[in-house]
């Protein structure tokens, strides 16, 4: 992907338009029937719900472009909903060859040069049907959502949504949603000055008509070594910890998991748009309290707390990461 980096984002954008031009006629035909007036009547909340539903329930395939700073990456993505669960295959097109094949909450990571498959499985303490419409209302307690413009993105007639945080403890977003299908075609993460920290966009996308064969791995994996990342759900309180994420961040997972340096506790929180993880590990002798380097919207802060290190990582401002780390408390067991 060096050439992409050299040619730059401007070139990519032109390419996106060109690539998606083919599907433009198709899209317009669809919006004439399915979009139009019904889409005009949607409230910002309804738009969010439609986007959530579309990401889960639609079949689509395409090329996703990720940009952060001067870095641009492309990945091919295929998504199929079989009526019960969703299936996905993600193929990064740069770096070492990898493939991520997801079925519901299980992701198989294929590492061809090592002939290995690493299975990552999300194990919830109790099953709940994902982040459904309920959180849209909660989300609005922490963000304001407005429909702003209508713009054409990659040949698709898109509704632009502007999402602003009510407080400075999280980022804002700008979303371009296909008015016909509800699929999110472009997403920008913005800081308080309105600067784009990160951008994801479909360079080309096809909605519907996805061949299931496209979900299969590119390599025959017979005889490959299979490893599973063992996450064991834990109760943080029983482990002697109390964490205080910003309001609106609800717990998704709390697990004991392997990390490079040994076992760690990981607690994951989401406010419906942003997520953060808190890692609690035994401290090394050299562990100190410090911010880790920022990467686009990702900030991380490690805090030494007695014989432990509490590290907060997420798509949150640096101050928030530090505040969450500083809010971690050891409680009596």
């Amino acid at each position: 992907m060096q050439f992409v980096r050299l040619l730059g984002w401007r070139w990519i954008t032109s390419a996106i338009v060109l690539l998606a031009f083919v599907s433009a006629a198709q899209s317009q035909a669809r919006s004439a029937t399915a979009g139009g007036d019904a889409a005009d009547a949607r409230s910002p909340e309804q738009w969010l719900q439609i986007v959530q539903q579309a990401a889960r329930r639609l079949d689509y395939s395409g090329t996703m472009v990720y940009q952060q700073g001067s870095e641009v990456r492309m990945s091919k993505i295929v998504h199929v909903f079989d009526g019960q669960v969703s299936h996905e295959r993600l193929q990064p097109m740069d770096g070492r060859p990898r493939e991520f094949i997801r079925r519901a909450d299980e992701v198989k990571c294929l590492i061809p040069e090592a002939r290995r498959v690493v299975i990552e499985r999300k194990t919830r303490a109790e099953s709940f049907p994902g982040l459904a419409a309920a959180t849209t209302a909660e989300l609005l307690q922490h963000y304001t959502v407005r429909t702003v413009d209508r713009e054409r993105v990659g040949g698709f007639d898109c509704q632009v949504l502007e999402i602003k945080p009510r407080q400075g403890d999280r980022y804002g977003y700008r979303l371009w949603v296909d008015r016909a299908s509800g699929l999110l075609l472009r997403s920008q993460t913005l800081n308080e000055r309105g600067e784009v920290l990160e951008q994801m966009a479909f360079a080309d996308v096809r909605v519907g008509g996805v061949d299931r064969e496209q979900l299969k791995p590119s390599w025959p994996t017979e005889g490959w070594k299979v490893d599973e990342v063992a996450h064991r759900p834990v109760d943080l309180r029983e482990q002697g910890w109390r964490l205080s994420p910003p309001s609106g961040f609800k717990p998704l997972y709390a697990v004991r998991r392997p990390m490079a340096a040994g076992q760690a506790l990981q607690a994951v929180y989401s406010d419906g748009l942003a997520s953060l993880s808190v890692f609690i590990e035994p401290a090394a002798e050299s562990s100190a309290s410090e911010a880790l380097p920022q990467r686009g919207p990702i900030n991380a802060y490690a805090r030494r707390l007695g014989d432990s290190v509490v590290t907060v990582v997420g798509e949150i401002p640096a101050e928030t990461a530090q505040a969450v780390a500083n809010g971690a408390e050891r409680i009596g067991r």
């Binding site: 990456r73 979303l175 419906g272 890692f279 990582v313």
Partner: peptide
């Protein structure tokens, strides 16, 4: 940071984009 991000992406759940999008970020 990469190590933490790799662990974070396993359990983070994007609500608006496909579930695999955290893997795009760290691919």
């Amino acid at each position: 940071l990469e190590r933490y991000l790799a662990a974070h992406r396993e359990l983070a759940e994007p609500t608006l984009m496909p579930h695999s999008t955290p893997y795009v970020r760290t691919s």
